[in-house]
């Protein structure tokens, strides 16, 4: 099995620990479509959400990052509007 050599880590700062956890819980349920091409792991440390992408190639990683960032935009927008 080809190894997932291309690794990228995205660290996203939130205002509160609760927000970071909510973001993790929102992103993590959806399964990865091609697990032999890419894996995505989520974790939180205090107010920071860390996402580690490991993939077969640059392209695969780019696509995954792009998807996650689009979802993060929605999450952050919801938080800005509705977290009070």
């Amino acid at each position: 099995m080809a190894s997932l050599d291309y690794i990228f880590q995205l660290d996203v700062p939130f205002i509160t620990t609760r927000q970071a956890t909510i973001a993790l819980n929102t992103l993590s349920p959806d399964p990865i479509l091609k697990p032999n091409e890419i894996t995505v792991e989520y974790s939180t440390k205090d107010t920071q959400l860390s996402i580690v992408f490991k993939g077969l190639s640059d392209r695969v990683i780019r696509v995954a990052i792009s998807n996650v960032i689009e979802n993060l935009k929605t999450i952050v927008e919801c938080m800005e509007e509705f977290d009070n």
């Binding site: 909510i22 819980n25 992103l27 919801c78 938080m79 509705f82 977290d83």
Partner: peptide
Amino acid sequence: IAARTIAQLW
């Protein structure tokens, strides 16, 4: 994604 977020916020 939006549904999950607001569900947890509220």
